[in-house]
Amino acid sequence: MGVYVHKSVLELADLTNREKLVLAYFFNLKLKKINLSNKEIALTLNFSAIEIKKIVLSLKNKKYISLVGNTTKREIKIKKNLEMKFEKATFNGFNLDDDILKLDLNTTKKFVLAEIRSLISSKNGKCTASNLHIANLLKLKERAIQTALLELEKNGFLKRNLKNVNGKTERTIILNLNNTATDETAVNFNEIKEEVPEQQYNDEVLAIFKSFPKRPMMSDFKVEEQKSLCLPILKSKSKDELEFIKFVIGFNVKNNESWKAGFMPYMYKFLEVDKEKYFNEAVKLEFDKFRNKPKVNANLQLLNLQLERDLFDFFSEIEESVWEATDLEILKEFKIRYINGYLKFNDIDFNKRALKKIKEYRPSNLNF
Rank of each mutant, 00 (worst) to 15 (best):
L307A: 04
N299Q: 14
N292F: 13
F189H: 08
E194A: 01
T72Q: 12
F244T: 01
E87F: 02
K289Q: 11
K32P: 00
E224G: 08
L242V: 03
S258P: 00
N70G: 12
C230M: 11
V165S: 13
D274Y: 01
A261S: 13
P363M: 10
A129I: 00
E281C: 08
L105A: 05
L119I: 12
S66W: 06
E360Q: 14
S364R: 10
I245C: 01
I78M: 01
R143F: 12
N346A: 12
Y361P: 01
E308I: 14
T44Q: 14
L36P: 02
S48R: 03
D313T: 06
I41H: 01
T172F: 10
V22M: 06
K284W: 06
K30G: 06
A114L: 09
Y268M: 02
L101Y: 06
E308M: 14
K63R: 13
K141D: 15
F279S: 05
F91D: 13
R215W: 04
I78Y: 02
N367G: 06
S236C: 04
E360A: 13
T107I: 15
K295C: 03
P265F: 00
A24M: 05
V68R: 11
L132V: 02
E115Q: 08
V187F: 11
R18L: 12
N38T: 06
Y25V: 11
F315A: 01
L31E: 15
L29M: 10
A129C: 05
Q199D: 12
T16P: 04
L21W: 00
T72I: 09
K53T: 14
S58I: 04
R353M: 03
P363R: 08
L67Y: 04
Q199V: 10
E184C: 08
N188D: 13
N95L: 15
M84N: 02
E333V: 07
T16Y: 00
K352M: 14
F47V: 05
T72S: 12
K344R: 13
I50A: 13
A261W: 07
M267H: 02
